[in-house]
Amino acid sequence: MKPSTVWGPRVLSVLRIVLGLVLLQYGLAKLFGWPAVEMFENLKWLSLFGIAGMFELVGGTLLVLGLFTRPVAFILSGEMAAAYFIEHLPHSFFPILNEGDLAVSLCFTFLYLAFAGGGPWSLDAFLRVETPLQPDVSRA
Rank of each mutant, 00 (worst) to 15 (best):
E79C: 07
A82N: 12
A36F: 08
L133E: 10
F126N: 07
V104L: 15
L63C: 08
A81I: 05
I51F: 11
S122H: 05
A125E: 12
F55C: 06
G118P: 08
W34L: 06
L24Y: 08
K44N: 12
R70V: 07
H91I: 00
G27W: 01
S122L: 03
V22C: 01
G27T: 04
L24P: 02
P120I: 14
I86P: 00
G33I: 03
A82E: 03
L12Q: 13
Y84G: 03
E87A: 15
K30Q: 07
I17W: 05
V22N: 07
V14C: 06
V64A: 10
I86G: 03
T131K: 15
V37K: 14
W7F: 10
F32V: 02
R10L: 04
P95V: 12
G8F: 07
A29P: 04
Y84H: 10
G117T: 02
P3H: 07
L97F: 08
V64M: 13
W34I: 08
V22G: 00
F55W: 12
S105H: 10
K44D: 10
I96C: 03
G33C: 09
S138L: 05
E99R: 15
L43S: 14
V104F: 11
S47R: 11
G27A: 01
V14N: 02
F40V: 06
F115Y: 15
S77H: 11
W45K: 03
F55Q: 07
L62E: 04
L65E: 04
R16S: 01
T109Q: 14
P90F: 11
T131C: 05
S13I: 00
G53E: 01
D136C: 01
F115V: 04
G100I: 03
L24T: 07
S122K: 07
A114T: 11
F110R: 12
S47H: 09
L67Y: 13
R10V: 01
Y112A: 12
W45E: 02
F110G: 01
Q134H: 10
H88Q: 14
K30N: 05
A36S: 14
P132H: 15
P3N: 08
L113V: 06
L123F: 09
G100Y: 14
R16Y: 12
T69P: 08
G27C: 01
C107M: 15
T5M: 09
L48I: 14
I96F: 10
L123T: 03
V58L: 12
I75V: 15
I86C: 05
R10H: 12
S47W: 14
Q134P: 00
W121N: 02
E79I: 01
M39H: 14
A125N: 13
E99V: 02
L62K: 06
K30L: 04
G118C: 04
L23D: 03
L15F: 08
E41P: 00
R10E: 03
L21V: 08
V58T: 05
A82S: 09
K30E: 10
G66F: 04
L123G: 04
A29H: 06
R10N: 03
L65P: 02
S4T: 13
F94P: 00
G59T: 02
Q134Y: 11
W7C: 07
L63E: 07
A125L: 01
L65F: 11
I86M: 14
A116G: 09
F49R: 11
G50F: 10
S13A: 05
P95S: 05
A114M: 09
V58H: 02
V18H: 10
